[in-house]
Design a protein around this nucleic acid. Structure first.
Length: 238
DNA sequence: CGGGTTTGACCGGCGC
DNA sequence: GCGCCGGTCAAACCCG
């Protein structure tokens, strides 16, 4: 039911054992065994990273769906979005545009760090914290639906649902405009946990899966027992 | 039978 | 105001 990253995932040409490590103050490193570490800082905003593979994703387990509470005037942080990624999807285009136009809440688009050791498309993880209040600040209605912080990344994978250690329940699927692949909506099955994620394939490159987390877990991963995860390698402390 | 998925309907935000 | 579209709901269905 939950295809694990270790069995269903295509590993072709992907960097082995990439690690994502916490650094202080919410910046973090993405590093692969034979790559120089890449450092992302929310304060430098807008870094698009192209490194790693599903392995890296699974190593993010337990830490992805969370963003720090106090960055930006709306609690938002944007870690990278390149202009080329802004396709038809809400995630990449609509929200991004709003972020760009929103009242100083986020910075959009930036550099593209890619490691081409195995070809340009070989290693991919894009990490992106999406803006919450990127929505237009003027016209704020009193009863505005509170948007949870978002965090998204992109991986090359055959399977859509990557095993991040949490248990998810699908609650919807939708074909979004101008895309041939449906977007799936998942919700954390844990009681009182309102984290959601959506999964879609990139229109431009169907091999790429875009996973977007929204909200933050109030619990630890449900099956954290499998494959040891040294604390030094997992935690993304927001 | 319980838990998960599917899928059409519905709702609400947004642009025009 | 209207229509479009993304997100969610919930009944029906599936599967172990």
């Amino acid at each position: 039911m939950f295809p694990s990253t270790s069995n269903g995932v295509m590993n072709q040409g992907l960097v082995e054992n990439p690690e994502i490590m916490a650094t202080s103050h919410m910046g973090f490193n993405l590093q692969a065994s034979h790559l120089p570490p890449l450092t992302f800082s929310p304060y430098s905003l807008s870094k698009t990273c192209t490194v790693g593979g599903e392995d890296a994703v699974s190593r993010l387990r337990g830490s992805l769906p969370s963003l720090p509470p106090d960055h930006g005037d709306d609690g938002s942080v944007r870690l990278g979005q390149s202009s080329t990624q802004r396709s038809s999807s809400d995630l990449w285009s609509r929200t991004g545009d709003r972020a760009a136009n929103g009242k100083g809440s986020s910075v959009v688009a930036g550099e593209n760090y890619s490691n081409n050791k195995n070809g340009p498309a070989a290693n991919n993880i894009i990490i992106d914290g999406l803006s919450v209040g990127a929505m237009r600040m003027k016209k704020v209605k009193v009863r505005r639906k509170v948007r949870e912080p978002r965090f998204c990344f992109k991986t090359m994978s055959e399977v859509d649902v990557l095993d991040d250690g949490y248990k998810w329940r699908k609650y919807g699927q939708k074909v979004v405009k101008n895309t041939q692949h449906p977007r799936s909506y998942y919700r954390c099955t844990q009681e009182n946990c309102r984290v959601k994620k959506r999964i879609e394939r990139m229109a431009e490159d169907p091999r790429m899966v875009i996973t977007t987390y929204e909200g933050r877990h109030v619990h630890s991963p449900s099956h954290a027992e499998e494959d040891s995860q040294p604390s030094s390698e997992v935690a993304l402390f927001w």
